[in-house]
Write a protein that binds this DNA or RNA. Sequence first.
DNA 1: CAAACATATCGACAATTATCGAATTGTGCA
DNA 2: TGCACAATTCGATAATTGTCGATATGTTTG
Lengths: 100, 100
Amino acid sequence: MEIIEINKVLSNETRLNILRWLKHPEANFPAHKDLGHFEDGVCVQYIGDKAGLSQSTISHYLSMMQKAKLIIPTRHGKWTYYKRNEKVIKAYTKYLKDSL
Amino acid sequence: MEIIEINKVLSNETRLNILRWLKHPEANFPAHKDLGHFEDGVCVQYIGDKAGLSQSTISHYLSMMQKAKLIIPTRHGKWTYYKRNEKVIKAYTKYLKDSL
DNA sequence: CAAACATATCGACAATTATCGAATTGTGCA
DNA sequence: TGCACAATTCGATAATTGTCGATATGTTTG
């Protein structure tokens, strides 16, 4: 777990929000037209709509977050869904609490 | 407590280190020639020596950290000592754990 | 296979951060 | 009072990040 990298990722309001939104997808996003559940999180489009930034920016943010292992992508057909990586998030907050 | 601001501050290796070093000043810094204790932390010079960056950079870092309320300055004569603000650090890690 | 659509990547440029040396300010002491 | 020293602030420049539109890639379906 790269603490500096994670802190960088989380020092941007939008990215922090995305992580929070994904904590309760059903409260923050419409149900996906095809997929009827949130098992694998939310597709890029919906996240982008909610964040109000360009598609490329959101895609870029998501890939940073994925690189830091904070989220996990799953492909369903032409959509990519992203969900939180609870294990890493937990480890991160615990590590901060213990090491800081 | 400004979470984004704190995350920014802590997304730099040196600043993160400073916060950690200050957790155990006696283990990380020489005792100050005049002051015989670490009650109020460590003076800017010693921190700079340990970090190996220019004096102005360290001063700047410390002021960012102070602005984010992570550290508290105390002036003793011509020296400024910095110590951790345990209350804010604690609140920060707790907040992250709860909100993330 | 070609069109349509979701996402990712590329290339650019503006904004922010990292970092330095020089100049300034604050403090103690000869 | 004025020199010595600690720290802060200033001004500059290099490096990184934010953000976009355009282009490319992957996938479904007619």
